[in-house]
Design a protein around this nucleic acid. Sequence first.
DNA 1: TATATTAATACAAACGTTTGTATTGTTATT
DNA 2: AATAACAATACAAACGTTTGTATTAATATA
Lengths: 347, 347
Amino acid sequence: MNKEKPTIIKLEDIAKALRVSISTVSRSLSNSSRVKEATRKKVREKADELGYIPNQIAKSLISGKTGVIGVIIPRYDEAFFIEVCRGIDHYARKHNYRILISSSRNSSRFEKENIMVFEKGIVDGLIISLTHQTKSQTHLQSMANRGTPLVVFDNMNEKIEGAMHVRIDDYSAAYEAVQFLAQKKSVQTVGFIGGTILKSIFNKRYEGYKDSLLSSDFSLKEEFVFNCKSMHQVHEYHEIYNFLSKLNQFPNAFFCSTDSYALLCIKALSKLGKRVPEDIQVVGFGNLHYSRLFNTELTSVSQPSFKMGEKAAELLLSKIIKGAYLPSEKIDELILPTKLIIRNTTC
Amino acid sequence: MNKEKPTIIKLEDIAKALRVSISTVSRSLSNSSRVKEATRKKVREKADELGYIPNQIAKSLISGKTGVIGVIIPRYDEAFFIEVCRGIDHYARKHNYRILISSSRNSSRFEKENIMVFEKGIVDGLIISLTHQTKSQTHLQSMANRGTPLVVFDNMNEKIEGAMHVRIDDYSAAYEAVQFLAQKKSVQTVGFIGGTILKSIFNKRYEGYKDSLLSSDFSLKEEFVFNCKSMHQVHEYHEIYNFLSKLNQFPNAFFCSTDSYALLCIKALSKLGKRVPEDIQVVGFGNLHYSRLFNTELTSVSQPSFKMGEKAAELLLSKIIKGAYLPSEKIDELILPTKLIIRNTTC
DNA sequence: TATATTAATACAAACGTTTGTATTGTTATT
DNA sequence: AATAACAATACAAACGTTTGTATTAATATA
């Protein structure tokens, strides 16, 4: 049985093989002009021959940089977050950075735990979307204070000093989407389906909805407003179905604070014998690509998820690379534009 | 302007503050009995006071372990992979491991690139689903040879010596799903919609489909078989729509090699005026949770994606923790069970 | 040919830990 | 009171790099 443990090659091995010093090997491989071209070549060849792979950990210990960005999202099974991660990855990769994704599972305990792991120096910076459980804000704040570059995207609670924020204008986006509905002759009432109001983005979308209704001289009917409490799609469906089935009368349209609420709403409505958009129109929020898979394509507020990731990464890396404590242009909030995409669930 | 750079506390700082040696501090914090309880307490308190956070990079350099598992998936925007990642994450987390996710973007170039980054020692092991472009197999093989624990899940091309594999029996799963359709009185012909046949899992599902038809004395009609070539959902829809619209005659059912093909198929069919399942029945593969969002719930081969991730992580960690070169029980292939979930797109 | 100059390389410290060995301090034994 | 035994702590090497400084070799200048 061949049990020889594959040995891992280091600079020292190359140095010994060539009877030169480790520093010469190191400098050769980084193409320093301090070593003669002939030697450099010899070293490169020997390195290839032995299959040398530099040890990133040792490099990191010296440079203080790991080449990794930490990302914390509330859940994996929401396409929006994955899309943002794609954007982060796309930008990061161009700058030779990797991403370490963690889910906080919508719990501040896990969030805190993840942050603590990242603080041990395995990432050069952090991009995070906060859960609605606010408690760990102090952790983030102290991380920012300690000088770790930090970008918060999507949901946030209160401002974190020293962090950068990338977001959309949830209030206005919702306001306009509801305006779009309210201006239709066929629409007299608009309902709302959203998530927990503890989450600030959901709350803002709700406020936008409310103010939009009021400014159109519509009345806000509490019975047409529903906020899901659970965090799992199957349960959410039942909550929504339950809510809708108890309605004696239906609004002409629903504005939903995410695409998945919208889809679940449509599903429940059709179960209840209502047609979309003929009987009831539905507008979602997010414009996620999976909604393309559906028969009836969803009218939705398009949120630039991928771009949001890219921008978050851009801000973060600019800080990481420049050094967090050099004076920067101090872009500490970036608001990306949204757009209502009209498809087949409105008419 | 307050420009004092936040200083990062290390063992030395605690040692100095307490006038003890660094090793005493280190041992105190790891609760070694070699240091007096009173001293340990003093050290712990000082560490808290100063806000000491251990440097994982330095630890890794010594231990040779980073506490990170690398994961390479072909694309982010396929729910199956995300679900597997969730499973990996779930298991890994319990063992104090993190995951570093990268996408190979279905390109062997990126795949290779990712592997090379991981080889620099930033991960303790690798879990990967291979793209259909085989080329980098040698890279993986040499990684395995070098002793890095390696698990391949889902798609693989040929066996990698020293790696472990977690998968399902794609052939049989497809075979049985098609049997289910073929046994219906209303079904005389079954079509197939799949992805690139270069990908071995798609190929196996196709073979299962084919053999299932033949064993039921159905004939295999080439005109009812379609394989998407593109890699983007929007394009895939057009491909499928195109294929279907050119059909003079339709089969009674379609077996699709993923859920998203099934959903796109349903969408295209309904655009063409066909009702599902009344006119044409559809079976998907994967049973992904987003299909729950749809009005008509998809009949699908349930693949234990989450579990697949968990198992992959379990195998990998057992090797990482035991040490890759100790004799292990040599579980090098794990085949997980699948199950046909009958819902509303068949009748 | 001796010396100044520069090119090429070697040495050694550093990054922040862990851990084996050496040293010091304390208590028990005689 | 001397010494053995052991507890408590300090010292130093190691992990695999990078990088500033010292040393040696090679060339140019006189």
